[in-house]
């Protein structure tokens, strides 16, 4: 695993566990691997590195995440569930970039956006972390622009 992927995994695990109160697993079982994508969100950034971070969630745990974040038993409406995912992506992105470049660097993050097309025109991510969460998974994908 590259240093970038290690930083990505650490930022993602910390965020899901501390902000979302979800247990994570480093290895994916068959159910987690095969779970279809429910939603995806992307955060664009610029600074010493430019690109975007995408978080794809699979396995229907988004309602649990949102309820956990609010400390409530019942999941909130879908709008707030997507908002929870946007905030998760924002926190992962805000924490991983300085972990890669050093904490003196300044990055500017755009507001996270829900994305429908997750294919990225076939472009592979620069770094990826696949994290097991309950019956599903989160794919945390870092795409750096070629000029970065």
């Amino acid at each position: 695993m590259s240093q970038m992927e290690t930083a990505l995994r650490q930022a993602a695990v910390m965020t899901f566990e501390e902000l979302g109160f979800l247990f994570t697993t480093p290895e994916l079982n068959e159910q987690q691997r095969n779970a279809p994508v429910d939603a995806a969100v992307s955060v664009a950034f610029n600074g010493p590195l430019r690109g975007h971070l995408m978080v794809q969630v699979s396995g229907d745990w988004l309602p649990t995440l949102a309820a956990n974040m609010l400390g409530e038993d019942e999941p909130p409406p879908p709008g707030l569930q997507h908002d929870a995912l946007r905030e998760i992506a924002n926190v992962i992105c805000g924490n991983v970039l300085p972990a890669i470049t050093g904490s003196r660097e300044v990055f500017y993050l755009s507001p996270p956006q829900i994305v429908e097309d997750t294919t990225q025109n076939g472009k592979p991510p620069t770094a990826a972390a696949h994290i097991g969460l309950e019956g599903g998974r989160a794919d945390v994908l870092l795409f750096l622009d070629e000029s970065s």
Binding site: N90, V91, C93, G94, N95, L97, P98, A99, S103, R104, E105, V106, F107, L109
Partner: peptide
């Protein structure tokens, strides 16, 4: 209250 992690910022 932010994700900001840059010491400079």
């Amino acid at each position: 209250v932010s994700t900001e992690s840059s010491e400079m910022r």
